[in-house]
Every structure is written in C-alpha cells, then in structure tokens.
Design a protein around this nucleic acid. Structure first.
Lengths: 216, 216, 216, 216
DNA sequence: TATGAATGAGATTTCATTCAT
DNA sequence: TATGAATGAAATCTCATTCAT
C-alpha cells in the first residue's frame, strides 16, 4: 500500500499510540506494536513523528485537544457555580467513558517523573486552574460560595475530585478501586456518582466553618 | 548460610528499587542501576527476588506496609469523624513528605494497567475502603454526618482527596500542578493545606442538600 | 520522452553523488541526501542508475573521465621527460584544486577492498601505467634517464608521488598530513611543492647508483 | 561461555574488527559480524568498547601501536640516511606483509573525511614527520644529503613513497595497481622493490639541481 | 554463597528501494 | 514519465537474566 497515509490511517496510528502508551507507559510501549496495530509500516511512523518521544507527544496532544474541546463546550455559556459544576462533572464522566484511552494516557503521564512531567503540568493544568479559580472567586464575590477558604484551594480540591472520578472511569486500578468502594462499575453508577458528587461539592462549597460550630 | 546479605543490604536494595521504579516505571527501571545503587550484585538481587516483576512486587509490598503502619497508628484509637479526618490528613501529609518514594511508587502502580493492577487494587484498597466506610456509617448513625449520601461514596470522595494531596506532595507532575493552583510547594503550605482540606471536608460531610435549599 | 531529466539535472545529480560518496564512502552515503542536494526525486535517480552501486559507478566514471581529459591535454604533445613531468605535476595539482570531489572519490575507491576494487584498478590504472612506462623507457633509450632502474618501477614511483600530492590537495587526512610535514596548505605552497617535487624527481630519474658510489 | 573474556578472545575481537573495518569502512562494518567472527556476544563487544566509534578507535590504536613498535625497532639505533632508509623500507615492507589488516585499516581511515580524520592525522603523523625531518636535516648538515630541497619536503616525499609501497602490499586496489605497473605481486618482488626504491631515493636525496645542469 | 561478565533477544531507528499517483 | 511516501529488512545498542568462578 504505497498510497499516502489517509486521514483515517493517521488517526488509527494515534489511537494505537494512545492505547499502547496508556497501557505500557512511555518506556514500555513498543513502536513496532503500535505500527502493526495501525497497519502501517514503522518507517511511516518515524517519518511522521521523528522518534518515540515525538510520537508520544503527538498522542498526548491529541488527548489534550479532545479534553479541551470537551471543556470548551461546557464552559462556553456562563452559569452559576452549581450549574457549572454539574455540567463539568457530566462532561468529564462522558469523556472518560468515550475517550478512555486519552484519560489513561493522561494518568500515565501524570505518574511519570522528571523535568518533562513538570513542564507538561504547566502546559496542561495552567488553563484549567485559572478557569476554576476565576469562576470560584466570582461565586464567592456574589455570595454564592463560602468565603472562608482560599478560592485557589477550592479549585484544587474541585479538580482533584474530578480527576479521580475520571480515572475511576477508565484506568484499571482506579476502576477496581471504585468497585471496592461503591460496588459496581462507574458506568452502571454514572447517574448516582454524578448526583452524589454534586451534593458533596455543594455542601463543601457552601457552608462556612462558623455554621458547623453553631450546629454542634 | 555462610555470607548472606545483611538486613541493611536488603533494605537498601528495596529502597533503591522503590526509587528507581518510582522514577522510571516498571518497564523503564534498570535492574543493574538498582543493584549498583544498593552496592549489591545483580546476581544477589535475582537470587532473592527471582525476576524483575518479583522484585517490583517486593518494593511495592514494602511501600504498602509502611503506609499500613502509618494508618494503623492513626486509627488505633477510636475518635469522632472530625478528629479522625484530621489525624489521617496529618499522617498522610507527613508520610508523603517522609516517604516520597513509596507514594510515588504507588502512583506509578495505580497508573499501570492490566489484570495485575486490578488485582493489586483489591489487595491495597480493600482494608482502607472498609475502614473508611465503616467509620462514616457510624458517624451517620450517630448523627454527626449527613445521611443523604451513601457512606461508600463519601468514603470514596474522602480517599480521593487524600490520595491527590499525597501525590501533590511527592510526584513531579502533581507537585507542579499544586503550585499552579495554590502557588508554593506543598511543604511550605502544609499547615494551610491541612486546615483548608479539613474545613472543606467538614462542610462536605456535614450539611445536607435540604439545608442548601433552605438557605437559598 | 515527455519530461526527461535535463542534462544539467543529471550533471548536478552526479556532482552531488561524487560529493556524498567522497565524504561518506559507498556504504555511508545516503541516496536521499544525494537526490535532495540535486533537487531530483529519488525515483528518478533509481530510474536512471538502477541502484546504489550503479550510481556509484556512474559517479566514478564521471571522475575518471575528467581525469582522463586532463591527462590527455597534457600528453597530447610530445616532450622530453622533464617537460613532461612538469606538465603532469602542474595539471594534477590544478585538477586536485578544481575537482576536489573527483580526487576524493578516487581516494575512497582505492581504499575500498574486494574484487570490485581490483577490477577497477585494472580499468583505471592500465592506461596511465603503460603511458608512463613507455615514456620512461623512451627516455632511457635516449640516454636522458638513468638505466639502472626498471622503467616500470620508475613509473610506479612517479605515479605514487603524483597520487599522494593530489590526495594532499583535497582529502582531509592527507591535507592535514601535508600541513604537519610542510606547514601550510597545499594551495599556499602549490608553486613550491611543484618545484621541489620536480627537483626531487629529476635527481631520482637521472643519477645512477654508480655515480653515488663515485661521489662518496 | 560465561568466563571472562580471555586475552586471546579480546585479541581476536580486535583482529576481527580491524579486518571488518578495513574491508568495509567505518559505516559499512557490521558489529554483529565482528562479534560473530570473534565468537563473542555483541553485548560483550559493547561492554568493552562502548559503541561502534569507540571500537573503531580501539582497532585503530592497535594498528598504530604495532606500527610504532615496528618503527621504534628500526630507529632505535643511530645510522646514516642510507642505512636508515634501507631499514625503514625493509621494516615497512615486512609490516605490510605480516600485518596487512593494520595497513588496510590505516588506508581506509586516511580516505575517510571530516574533522575526525584531520584530528587523527595530527595524532598519527606527528611523530613520524618530525623524526624524518630531523634525520634528513642532520644528513643535510653532515653534507650527506642535498641541501637545495627543504628537509620537510624531502621527508614528505619520502613518507609518501613508503606509504604507497605499504598500500601496494595489502590493499586490493593498490596491489592490483602494483601488478599493472610492475607485473607480479609485491611479495614476489619484495627484494627488487626494496632495492629499486632505495636506489631511487638515494639519487633523489643526493644530487642537486646544479649537478643536473652540469651534466646536460 | 555472592559476584558480575557474558549472553542474546528484542528494542529503536535508518535508509535503499519500490510503485501508486 | 517523475515523484516521493511507504515499505520493511537490517543495523546499532540495551538490558533482563544466567551461571562459571
């Protein structure tokens, strides 16, 4: 097959890469296996992406772009914090169901160490962190959200919960862990998970320390 | 048993292994490097642990035992949920500071896929999940904690936040992510992190949905 | 014959080939690089020359033809040995300056081993060797040149010196070697080199062993 | 065979390397082939020499050391130029017969281009060039050698002839070229070659330009 | 028993060559 | 016919594992 690689073939190459890197990590992934899975030659793989690192980066970019698109859909319309949180939770649960490979790759990347990982963190988390912190600060200013916790920390806890819920949707370890805690798979429990997480967050974001003291 | 590896030598082997596996992952880790770091021959390493997977398992066990000991200290005395949460947060923050390698290794393991990861999740998370769920259910029964969320889910969210806070303490990616969200390193902010997380959890675990509706 | 490679394109292909083969040797040369340098497709290169060996051969032929032309100019007019030697030395020094790539290619070829190299030696050196030996034998018969050395050997030594002087002009190793012996580059010293070599050869070709014995 | 590589095995590795590099050049040589020829594993080859370049360098060093030893034997005793030249010619002819691979390797190296080749020229030719030029200058001072040619140039021509005679002894191309000029192999003609070259050099080194003019 | 050099399968990467366009 | 992307064999090099000492 000496035709130029079709768009689909290139897609399938990236998908195969995402899958393999997510499964075995950067070091463990096998370029030959990836090429074979996508039914293209190793030569073509190298022609397009230079080397293993370059190809890994391309797979990662593909994943992050998809995530960005998903978040962009959700955050394009203004909304209050509750509505906002609901939409993000739904969107990320769906993303984790439909693009399991992307999330797995992200999980693997985040677990890898070194300067490279640090640099990527800056690239990947910068936008989200500012978006969340901004929305939360606005909510606090409007009196919708508690004011006794730093908006940055609130954003941090919020994103932590979202990440873990995504990982639970598609990484083997985190899926099993979810089963142990909640019984059943994240898909089966998707609605319940969404609702309970929302309730959890609403309380956490709403009530101040002083109100607890009063109650006690 | 003429000349056997001393206890210290075996310890230093495991420490070197934890470090290397945490840094480079299972596939990327180099057995020679590990042996050299511990000043042990590769032959001895293989004699004691069979092969790379077996040694990885031993490193993991060592990490998990340390974590178990830390949690056991904290949970040995009965206490109400708030006190309990406070103690666990403190203990895990300290653990992540003092045993960075163990936590990193756990992070890497959790990111790895396959049957093996699933099996390990069962082994590792089983105890904790039952412990948390039990304590939370007791709190609900005693009227200390909200009753409108499944205790299993509450436990799940609780552990999620704890894991992420630990990762933030010692994994390169998560450390940098923390810096982006909160500015500064987890060590510098340890006290603040502890307090804010506690406040967050207290609200999340205390107030019911109906109370929010009332307030609005 | 709709669109054929123009004469210039073929020339530039051969020039690029000579350069690349001279620089990296037959095995080290890269067909893609050659085609790119000449702004020709690899496909066309293969269409015209079959394979790498075939193209190498074509580059070599081009080099040898240029050398033949240069020698033909010089040897077309009859002359005595001294005049003859002077012309050849001048011509080859100029050739090595103006066609460095050809000489380098020849040097590389001569260093390569195998049946092929032997066969090429026959092709390349046959004419020159007969030409030199003939001229020298004539000089001996005329009493211009010493008679106590086999003309074949005299021709051999003569050609050896010419080859080395050419290599000194354009091959990195031999250039540097010249600098170590004589200080300066062959271009800077071209006149001196020519004169000294001529003096050297004149004595070597003139005086017989017996004359040395007499002197002593 | 898990014993440490014996001295002989290491020798045979270097010999195999010299042979392969001489035959195919640095780029064309095959590390697997070399290891197989020496009946050792590729792993061991790489353990000892790091990479292909490092091993090439080791092979080259071995060759140069052998050459140095040979020249040292010859130049250890003081002698006049004629005796000196006779000894060197004999020694190098023998060297080229007995250590064909070393000379071939040297020939290949000298034909390779680039910065590396230049650097090696400095290393390799530095000693010889100074030795020759010194001896020749002494001969000129003593009135044994002609004074109308720069000793450096005389040394250069002298070494050129020696190199070519060596190449004629063991490089396929140069051997065939010798046959074309002189008929027969350099071994068959070794004595004659030695004597004729000596006569050639004696005249070249003895008689001044003015003497030729007188004769004419 | 501990050692660590040797092994060699297997990984990444290159590049001569082909052939659909 | 010329093109140059695709091919895949083959090269270099690594490293988990073995086993003679």
């Amino acid at each position: 097959m000496l035709k130029k690689l079709s768009e689909e073939q290139l897609e399938s190459l990236l998908e195969a890469g995402v899958e393999e890197f997510a499964r075995r990590g950067l070091a463990g992934a096998n370029m030959r296996t990836i090429a074979d899975r996508a039914c293209i030659s190793v030569g073509a793989l190298y022609k397009y992406y230079g080397d293993k690192d370059g190809f890994f980066r391309a797979c990662l970019d593909r994943s992050l772009e998809a995530l960005d698109r998903t978040l962009a859909e959700v955050t394009s319309e203004e909304a209050g914090f509750r509505e906002y949180a609901r939409r993000i939770i739904q969107a990320l649960l769906r993303f984790s169901r439909e693009h399991a490979g992307y999330v797995r790759l992200y999980c693997v990347l985040a677990a890898s160490g070194g300067e490279e990982a640090r640099r990527l963190a800056g690239e990947i988390e910068g936008v989200t962190s500012r978006l969340y912190a901004g929305t939360i600060a606005a909510g606090q200013a409007a009196g919708d959200l508690r004011r006794d916790i730093d908006p940055a920390m609130l954003a941090f806890f919020f994103d932590n919960l979202l990440m873990m819920v995504q990982f639970a949707g598609c990484c083997d370890y985190y899926r099993e862990r979810f089963r142990l805690y909640c019984g059943g798979t994240p898909e089966e429990q998707e609605d319940r998970l969404e609702q309970e997480l929302l309730k959890f967050l609403e309380s956490a974001f709403t009530f101040e320390q002083s109100e607890i003291v009063h109650r006690t």
